Lab assay of single mutants.
Amino acid sequence: MGSVRTNRYSIVSSEEDGMKLATMAVANGFGNGKSKVHTRQQCRSRFVKKDGHCNVQFINVGEKGQRYLADIFTTCVDIRWRWMLVIFCLAFVLSWLFFGCVFWLIALLHGDLDTDYKDDDDKSKVSKACVSEVNSFTAAFLFSIETQTTIGYGFRCVTDECPIAVFMVVFQSIVGCIIDAFIIGAVMAKMAKPKKRNETLVFSHNAVIAMRDGKLCLMWRVGNLRKSHLVEAHVRAQLLKSRITSEGEYIPLDQIDINVGFDSGIDRIFLVSPITIVHEIDEDSPLYDLSKQDIDNADFEIVVILEGMVEATAMTTQCRSSYLANEILWGHRYEPVLFEEKHYYKVDYSRFHKTYEVPNTPLCSARDLAEKKYILSNANSFCYENEVALTSKEEEEDSENGVPESTSTDSPPGIDLHNQASVPLEPRPLRRESEIGSRR
C-alpha cells in the first residue's frame, strides 16, 4: 500500500517518465508532432483561472445545437444578457408577425380586404367582416399587437362572423401568456443567479507553507467582502497533476483530494472575517514527500473551492481559484488583518494578500521532518523571529508614515537576534492585533 500511495502522490514527473511517455506515443502511432509532453521546463496551462473560470474549450460535440435547444431554459439562463435581450425582442416580434399574417390571411380569404370602410357607412358590411377595420397587412399586424398586449384601442375587434378568427384570438392570448411567463422566468432566474456573489468572495493571491502546531501546513486565505453571511460555508481543495499509471496509461489531469478537515468538520467555516484555511501535510497528503526545492521545480495546480448558500436567496454559490506551484510561498505567513478595537473588531483588507517571511522554516519535506531528519529550532526562537518579522513590518510602515526611528523597538546594537533566540524570552503579545485562523 505504501508503494502504491507514493506512486499515486508523486508530484514532480521525472525525466524517465517523460521519455517513457514519448516512447509510448511513438510506439502507439501518436508521434505526429502534435502531442505535447509536459516536462519541468514546460509548465501546463492553468486549468482553473484565478477568477474561477475553467480554462476549457469543448470541440467536436455531436448534436450540440439539439442538446442546447432541448434544455432551452438553461440555455437562456446561461447566455449573455445581450443575447437574452435579442431573444426577448424576437420572441414578441415574431409572435406578433405570425398572428398578424394569420389574421391577414383570414381577412384575405373572407374577402374583407376588398371592402373600403372609410367611404361605406353600411354597418351590415362591417358585421360581415371577420375582424372589423382590418383591410391590410398593417392593420392585421396592429390588431395582433393589440390582442397579445391587451391594449385594446377599440377600432379593431373580432366579430362572430368567422369562428376561426375567434379561435385565433383565444389562441394568441394563451401563447402570449406562455411567452411572458417564459421570458420573465428566465430573466428573473438569470438575475437571481448567485454567480455575481463570487465577486465579493476573495482568495489570497498566494498560498503559503509554514509551520503550525509543530507541523508543516499548506495555507491559503479566504474572505467575504459583504456583511451578509454565506450560510453553510465549506471549503474543498484538489491537486491536479499528470501521472502515468503502473500499466503505462497517461492521465493528463489526475485529481487528488486535499484534506482540509472534512473528517473532523473544520472544513465548515464561519466566514465573517478572513480565515486562513489549513491543510496539514501528513502522510496522507500529496505534498508529504515534497521539499522546498521540489515545490520550486514541480508542475501541478491546486484548485480551491468555497461553497455556501447566499443568505438573501438561499441559492448555492461556488467560488473557485487555483494556485500553481510557483504561487506557493515556502516559509511565509499571512499578515494579520483582524484588529481588536474598543467595542468592535476591524478588518483591514489592505493586508489581505500580504505575507511575511518566517525565518528558520524547515526546507525539507514533511516526511523528513516526521522522521527527525531535520532538527527544528527552539520553539522560543521560532516565536521570537516570528515577532521580529512582524515588528520589522510595523517599523517599515512607521518610517513610511514619517514616525521617528527613535520610537521604534530596535534591538541594541551589536546583538545578533538569531543568537539571542536560544535565550528564554518573556511572551510578547501583539500590541493591538490578533489573527483569527482556522485551528486544527
Rank of each mutant, 00 (worst) to 15 (best):
V4S: 14
R5D: 15
R5K: 11
N7T: 14
R8C: 07
S10D: 15
I11C: 14
V12Q: 11
S13Q: 10
D17H: 08
K20Q: 12
K20V: 04
L21C: 06
A27N: 13
G29M: 04
S35Q: 10
K36E: 10
V37Y: 06
H38F: 07
R40I: 11
Q41S: 10
C43E: 15
S45P: 08
S45T: 11
K50W: 00
D51K: 12
G52T: 03
N55D: 14
I59C: 15
N60E: 12
V61C: 14
K64F: 08
K64V: 13
Q66P: 07
Q66K: 15
R67S: 07
D71G: 13
D71Q: 15
I72N: 14
F73Q: 15
T74P: 15
V77T: 10
D78K: 12
I79A: 06
M84H: 11
L85W: 06
I87E: 15
A91S: 08
W96P: 02
L97W: 00
F99R: 00
F99D: 00
L109C: 13
H110I: 00
H110P: 01
H110S: 03
H110E: 11
T115N: 03
T115K: 04
Y117A: 00
D119C: 01
D119I: 00
D119Q: 01
D121A: 15
D121H: 14
S124Y: 14
S124R: 04
V126P: 05
S127H: 06
S127A: 15
K128F: 11
K128H: 13
C130R: 03
A139Q: 07
L142N: 02
F143T: 04
S144V: 02
T147W: 03
T149M: 05
T150Q: 05
G154I: 02
C157F: 11
E161Q: 14
P163H: 11
I164R: 00
A165W: 03
V166Y: 04
V170L: 09
F171G: 03
Q172V: 02
S173V: 15
S173P: 03
I174H: 01
I174K: 01
G176S: 13
C177R: 15
I178G: 03
I179N: 14
F182K: 10
I183P: 08
G185S: 13
G185M: 04
M188H: 12
A189G: 13
A189F: 10
K190W: 11
K193V: 06
P194R: 04
P194S: 06
K195I: 11
E199F: 06
L201K: 01
S204C: 08
A207Y: 00
V208D: 00
V208T: 09
V208I: 07
I209H: 01
A210P: 00
R212I: 04
K215G: 08
K215H: 11
L216I: 02
C217F: 07
L218I: 04
M219F: 07
W220F: 08
G223Y: 05
G223T: 12
L225N: 10
A233T: 10
V235K: 00
L240P: 01
K241Q: 10
T245P: 13
T245A: 12
G248D: 14
E249Y: 06
L253E: 14
Q255I: 09
Q255S: 07
N259L: 07
V260Q: 00
G261W: 11
I266A: 09
R268C: 10
F270P: 08
F270L: 12
V272G: 10
S273Q: 13
P274M: 07
I275Q: 09
I275D: 05
H279K: 00
I281Y: 00
E283S: 07
E283H: 13
P286R: 00
P286D: 01
L290F: 10
Q293K: 04
D294R: 09
D296P: 07
N297T: 08
F300E: 01
V303T: 12
V304G: 02
L306C: 04
L306N: 02
E307D: 12
G308L: 12
A314Q: 04
M315H: 05
C319A: 10
R320G: 09
R320D: 02
S321N: 06
S322R: 00
S322Y: 01
E327Y: 01
L329V: 12
W330M: 00
H332K: 04
R333K: 12
V337H: 01
L338D: 03
F339V: 10
F339N: 15
E340V: 07
E341Q: 12
H343Q: 11
Y345W: 07
V347L: 11
V347M: 13
F352D: 01
F352G: 01
H353K: 00
K354H: 12
Y356V: 15
P359H: 05
P359E: 15
A366F: 00
A366K: 01
R367I: 00
A370N: 07
A370L: 06
K372V: 07
Y374G: 14
I375Y: 07
N378H: 12
S381Y: 04
E385N: 04
V388A: 14
A389W: 06
A389E: 14
E394S: 14
E397S: 13
E405C: 06
S406H: 11
S406G: 11
S408A: 10
D410A: 07
D410K: 05
S411D: 13
G414A: 12
G414V: 11
I415S: 10
L417H: 04
L417Q: 11
H418T: 13
Q420N: 09
S422R: 07
S422Q: 13
P429G: 08
E433T: 11
